[in-house]
Nucleic acid binder design. Structure first.
Lengths: 130, 130
DNA sequence: TCTTGACTTAGAGTTAACTCCAGGTGTTAC
DNA sequence: GTAACACCTGGAGTTAACTCTAAGTCAAGA
């Protein structure tokens, strides 16, 4: 599968795909005789993984570290697990913070809603006055 | 309260406080005769609000828009509510995505844990062999 | 054969949100 | 009164993560 098709399927731009490869996040993408990238199923799975992690805010650099460990084989399992645990904890903390912000936003929206209701009441009472 | 103290209390650097003011996120910070910033309770509340929103990833630009509406008074309540609702929805969506990533991370950590257990078992069985 | 369009590379440019710097002023402690 | 220090401003620099550009290659169709 060539880069344009991969881009369509995954929603990741060709530029970004090439960038990921360049920085070591997508190693071993095959090339055909003409030097053109041919993505296989493994590449696609990796792209989906990267997408998922990136959307959650994990730094590209951390993902590169992880991928490099994967390439080094089984003796890095412990180290990989530690990276994932660290990122999991950071992510959980960020989710908790965002939840607090969400609560505050909902509270403020509620305040604005009653303010608007008040305004309306006021207008209705004016109607009755006249 | 001067900028250094505010920075200590809030954890926001003096540079960032000045930056927020410059872009219109912290309007109307008073100055003393010497031209030095004197932050009051309202400023502090606003800083806490900004901190909360920024930690959740709301863009500075959106916050500026919101603050500018607040300055324009009551007739902007509807518009302000809409901004908050939009950001609330975006935030809820991001939290949901991050939760998915968190689940995936936990799953992967689990996989690594059983891989490590397997390794250990293997080593124990070797001990029995010899 | 010539053109079109997708692909390649190296490297420069962009964006958001700070963060730092130089040069200057004001305030406080001795 | 002078040294040290906190503050000021305008503007430049930084960082992460892309995103774009220029110049070139290659395959397929008119």
């Amino acid at each position: 599968m060539k880069i344009a098709e991969v881009s369509d399927k995954t929603g990741v731009s060709p530029d970004t795909l090439r960038y990921y490869e360049r920085v070591g996040l997508l190693p071993s993408v095959r090339r055909n005789e003409g030097g053109i990238r041919e993505y296989d199923a493994t590449d696609l799975r990796r792209i989906e993984f990267i997408k998922c992690m990136r959307r959650a805010g994990l730094p590209v650099e951390t993902l590169i570290e992880y991928v490099q460990l994967v390439l080094q084989g089984d003796q890095t399992i412990e180290a990989r697990k530690e990276i994932l645990q660290e990122q999991r904890d950071l992510l959980a903390a960020r989710i908790a913070e965002m939840q607090k912000t969400l609560d505050l936003l909902n509270y403020k929206i509620g305040v604005y809603e009653s303010a608007l209701l008040e305004k309306e009441k006021e207008m209705l009472s004016r109607v009755e006055e006249f």
